[in-house]
Design a protein around this nucleic acid. Structure first.
Lengths: 154, 154
DNA sequence: GGTTGCATTGGAGCGCACTCACAGCCCTAG
DNA sequence: CTAGGGCTGTGAGTGCGCTCCAATGCAACC
C-alpha cells in the first residue's frame, strides 16, 4: 500500500463506518444540489442517532441547519459531513465541550488551524491509550474465561 | 509461547494494569495474613479511584468489606482482587448494573458459572467491537491530521 | 374538511456513576 | 487534655449527554 492507497483507505474508514453514513449515501445526498437535503429523521437514521440528539446538537451550537418553508430542518451535505465527524468524535469519547471548542475554532478561520491540529493530536493520543486499555481488559476477560473453562473457581 | 506462558502473561495483564494495582502491591498485601489489610485511602490509591467510589461500591453491594475495631474499612486480598476485577470491567465500559448481576451470580455459587461465562463472553464481544470502533476513529483522526498537514482546509 | 403524523420550540426530566456535605466518632500528637 | 485529621453512614448534589414533554403547526392522505 502506498501513500495514496493509505489515504483512500483512511478516508473510506473515516466516512464509511459500520452503522454510520455510507459513502453511497453521501453521494446520493450530493447528487443534485437542489434535492440534496435530508430531513431530520433521514439524517438521524443515517448517522445512527436519535433525532432529539440532532436538535440538541443544533441548540448547543454544534451545527447550524437550514429550514424549509415549513420551518423544518434540512440537512445539506456540509452539515451532514460535519455531523459525521462530530458523531465519530463523540462515539470515540470526545466530550461535547471539546467539540464545541473545535467548531468554534473552525468558525474562527484558518488562523486556528494549529490549535485544531493540537486538539486532534491530543485526541489521537487519547484514542491510542483507550485502545490499549481496552485491549488489556480484553486480555483480562479472556484470561478469566480461560480459568472458568479449566477449573470453575470465581 | 506455550499455553502456560500465555496464561501467565494474561494474568499479568489482568492484575497488573498500568495505573492499577501492581502484582508487587498485591504480594505485599498478602505477605502476612495479619497485616495484609489496606485502609480505604491505600486501596483507593492502588486502584486509582476515589475513596468515595469504594464506599459507594460497598453501599450498592459490589463488595463486602471488613471493619477494624474502630469501624474503619479494612480491605483484604480477596476484596482487593474483586475490586481490581470490578474496576477493570468498569473502565472497559461494563455498567454497574451488570457488575451487580455478576457478583450476584458469584455469590450464587457454582451453579451460576454458565451464566457468568455468558456474561464474560458478551463483554468480550463488546470489547472487541469497541476496539474496532476506536481504531476506526483513530484512522479517521489520522486522516484528518493528514489533510490538515497537506492543505489546511476544515 | 378532518385525521394522522411528523415536525417545531423551550424547558424539564432522566439515568448513570460518581462526588460531596454533614454530623459524629476515634486515634494520635503535642 | 485538646486539637487535628481521617474515618464513618446517609442523603443529597453534580455533570454529562441525552431524552422526553407539552403545546402548537404544517402537510399529506382519506
Amino acid at each position: 500500500m502506498d501513500q495514496d492507497e493509505l489515504l483512500t483507505e483512511a478516508l473510506r474508514l473515516a466516512i464509511d463506518p459500520p452503522g454510520g453514513v455510507s459513502v453511497d449515501a453521501l453521494r446520493e445526498l450530493t447528487r443534485d444540489d437542489d434535492a440534496g437535503q435530508w430531513d431530520i429523521a433521514t439524517t438521524a437514521a443515517h448517522l445512527g442517532v436519535n433525532p432529539h440528539t440532532l436538535r440538541y446538537y443544533e441548540r448547543i451550537g454544534l451545527v447550524s441547519v437550514d429550514r424549509d418553508t415549513a420551518g423544518h430542518r434540512r440537512y445539506n451535505a456540509p452539515a451532514v459531513r460535519r455531523l459525521v465527524f462530530l458523531t465519530r468524535m463523540r462515539t470515540s469519547g470526545m466530550p461535547i465541550s471539546d467539540l464545541l471548542r473545535y467548531v468554534g475554532l473552525v468558525e474562527g478561520g484558518g488562523a486556528t488551524v494549529p490549535e485544531r491540529l493540537e486538539m486532534l493530536l491530543e485526541h489521537r493520543d487519547t484514542l491510542r491509550s483507550q485502545i490499549a486499555q481496552l485491549q488489556l481488559a480484553l486480555a483480562a476477560t479472556e484470561f478469566k474465561l480461560a480459568t472458568y473453562k479449566e477449573a470453575p473457581r470465581p
